[in-house]
Amino acid sequence: MNSKTNRANHIILRVEGLKKYFPVRRGFFQKIAAWNKAVDGVSFEIQQGKTLGLVGESGCGKTTVARLILKLLESDAGKIVFRGTDISKLAENDMKLYRKDMQIVFQDPYGSLNPRMTVGLSIEEGLRILGIKNAPKRKERLEKLLQMVGMSPESADRYPHEFSGGQRQRIGIARALSVEPLLIICDEPVSALDVSIQAQIINLLKDLQDRLGLSYLFISHDLNVVGYLCNTIAVMYKGCIMEFAPAEQLFENPRHPYTISLLAAIPDPEPGNTPDLHLPERDLPDSSIPIFGCSFQGRCTLEETRCREERTTLAQVGEEHFVRCWKAAQNKIPKVS
């Protein structure tokens, strides 16, 4: 087996040219006035047992990408190749085969747990889906799952509101694990938590990955968390991936002007380590005005005429390092080995 196919075998998920446009309706007749290009040609891949971080500011399309992959939302274009099969066009019935292999953990576990169901019943649902019909067996699995996420077996008989935010997040993780998934999409799983609890959940996710060989798509806007946890990072802006690189690369040698401004904006918990920033004073430009060329225009300090006249492409600038900016790509010619 050559190294290329070997690598392909280790890719659990690959998305290619994923698109989702939402109609923007206006006026009395609610006519479609414009399209909100929430996801506009997103491509990336996740290696088995590894974590891909998807970062970007609010509204850039991260959650929409997650919902497209899980087929909670129909994509307008693109491929979603999961374990070698393109699931993007699969009918709901055929999807069943894959559903249980992909799970999601949300930012607000409260909203995703049924408040009228005990924690035990919520988690057991997954075990039924797995086809474990024998009740004592299910109970045994349930206890094991709770133990895995650091909760006592008694928790099973209590209701979601009786738990703290961190505990509910553990329950959400236990429920995701119940169907023995291969990939877990984590959408801002620690953003709502306090630092001391955040560390507990991050450690838990890491332990589970080591033990079960899970792959994660980890969505966050916190670069400190992503930098700690992820193997590769995709930086998203207005529906497009602007830069994609191994985590160390992205932090050591960021190439896209947007990535550079994001990194500069991380509050650093070391006093004196925060030089005055030279961020553009402008806020996000109005997204309903259609623009041609690079979507970072209007906020980029390096913008030139060409940025507004040419369609952008993702250019390779290093091994597994891609950037969507002609200037960044030209500065240094890709060092492909």
Binding site: V195, I197, N203, N224, Y228, A247
Partner: peptide, 24 residues
């Protein structure tokens, strides 16, 4: 000390994060 130790950052990659046990 616990709060500072539990902050994630890329410089702590591969190391286990300190976490303060229990809750507020």
């Amino acid at each position: 000390q616990g709060l500072l130790a539990s902050l994630p950052s890329r410089l702590k990659r591969g190391k286990r994060l300190y976490s303060i046990p229990g809750v507020v």
